[in-house]
Write a protein that binds this DNA or RNA. Sequence first.
DNA 1: GTATGCGGGTGTC
DNA 2: GACACCCGCATAC
Length: 504
Amino acid sequence: MPAEAGRAADCARSYGMKLSWDINDPQMPQEPAHFDCFCEWPDGYVRFIYRSDEKKAQRHLSGWAMRNTNNHNGHILKKSCLGVVVCARACALPDGSRLQLRPAICDKARLKQQKKACPNCHSALELIPCRGHSGYPVTNFWRLDGNAIFFQAKGVHDHPRPESKSETEARRSSNKRQMASLYQPQKKRILEPEAGEDQDNSGHFNNIPPPENPEEWDIITDTGFPIPAQPCFAFLNSDVYKAACDLATSQGDVMPPFQKYPNSRICLPRPPCSYELAGPGYTNLNPYPTLYKDASNNPNDTDWVRLNALQYNVNSYCSFERSCDLACKQHGWKPALGKPGLGERTDPGQFQAAHPYYNPELPCRYLTTAPPGAPALQTVITTTTKVSYQAYQPPALKYCDSVREAKNLSDCNYTSENTPVSVYPETLGLPAAVTRAASPTGSLPLKILGDGRPIRTTLTFPQESVPPRTDRAETWDVCASGLGSAICYSDRVSPFFSYDNEEF
DNA sequence: GTATGCGGGTGTC
DNA sequence: GACACCCGCATAC
C-alpha cells in the first residue's frame, strides 16, 4: 500500500474513535492520554479529542460551512452543515471546474448571497443542502470537558466541499491589501477599452454576454476583477493569482475555478464515476493526468488544486483522508483494521469516514437525474428572503450529465482488488449501506431508514453489496475503493485565470 | 457586514 | 423528550 494511502487509512482511526464515548455522555473520558490533531474536514461518524488549547478546536472551526444549531444544551455546541452553493446550471468554468461557493453562515448574508448570479454564466445560484445525516444536515458537536475538547460528527456530507473558512478569510485579508493597488488601474482600463487590450484575454467569460447596462462594468471593476489586461499567465505566480482572486471574490464567497484545497494533495482511491468526463477539461480517458499539478507551470504553488470538476465525484469519497492526511501523519494512530476493542463503540460512519465513497448516496449524486425516490426536499432559492424546501427537481443540467451520457452507471465501480477494510456496523440503526445491501442490483429507489423515514437514494453499486451483519462486534471485510491504489493528486494548477465579476 | 454563540420558541415525530 | 429549525440578540472581528 502506498504510503499516502497508509496515512489516509491511519487518519480514519483517530484517538477519539478508539475510546468509547458519546458527546452526550454524562461523563466524558477523563484526562485522555492522547489527542487528535485538528481535522478541518471531518466527514462521517467520527469523533476526535482535541487538546483544550487547540486554537481551531476552541473556535469550533470546520472547513464545512457549519452554522450554529440550538440544541438547548449549554454544554454541547451543535452545528449543522449548510451544504454548498453552486451554479444552478452547473456551468463549467473554462478550466472545467465548477463553482462551489461557501454558503454564508449568517442567514442574512446567505440570503444575500443566493440572490447573486453565477459569476460565470449569470444564471441563478443554487444551494445544495447537506442531507448527509439521515436526510438531515450533517451535525457536528463540540464539548469542552476538562483539558480536552471533544468533537463528534454525525453524517456523511453528500455534497462537494465549499471553500473553506480559512481560504475565505485568507482571501478577504489579501483582498483588503490588494484592493487599493489594483482597483484604480483596472477601472481605468475598463473605462478605456480602446486601449487595445483584448478583453477576451481572461478566457473566462466567454459565457457571459456583454453587460447590457454600463453599470455592470462598474460592478465588475468595483470588485477589482482583472478581466482585461490580465493575461492568463499573470497568475502562474500563486501570490498574484490569489491576489486577483481575492479581488474578484471580494467577500470570499466565490471560489477560484481551481479550488484551493486546504491540503496540498488529494488522495483518490480510484477514478470514480469517470470524473474525467465531467467537464470539458477532463475528456482524457486517462483518469489522472489533468489532476496532477504541473509543477513546471506553477512551481510556487503548493496547494491550489484543479479539481472542481473532479470534486463533485470525488470529494466525499476521501475528504476525510485528505483533510487529515497531513495533519495527522505524525500522530501514530494504530493501523489496525480489525475488530474494535471490547467496549468500543462502533459507528457505521467510522467506515464511512474512512471510506466515504462507500456511502451509496455519494458517488452518483451528481450523476443521476432524480430517481423515483428522489429527495423529497430541495432547498430552493426563491426571490423572497426565504429558502424553501420543495420537491427535488434537478437542474436542467446537473453536474455530471455529460458523464451520464457518456458512461453507463455501471462504470461507477468503486470496489477494487485492493485492500480489504474492516467496517464496523452498528447494530442499532444500521447504516445506509446495510439497507442498500438488500438491493444489490442497484435499484433501490427509496431508502427507508430505521425511523421509517424515506430519504433520497441514488443508484447503488453491486460491488458495494455487503452482507448484512447483525453482530456488532464483528467487522465487515469489504473492498475499499483502492486504498492500495490511492493516488495523491499533487496540486495542479491551471494556467487559466479565474472568473468573477461580482461580489459574492 | 459577517461570523459566532446563546437561548427562546415552535413544529414534528 | 429528542430533534430540527426559526428567530432575535449580543459580541467579536
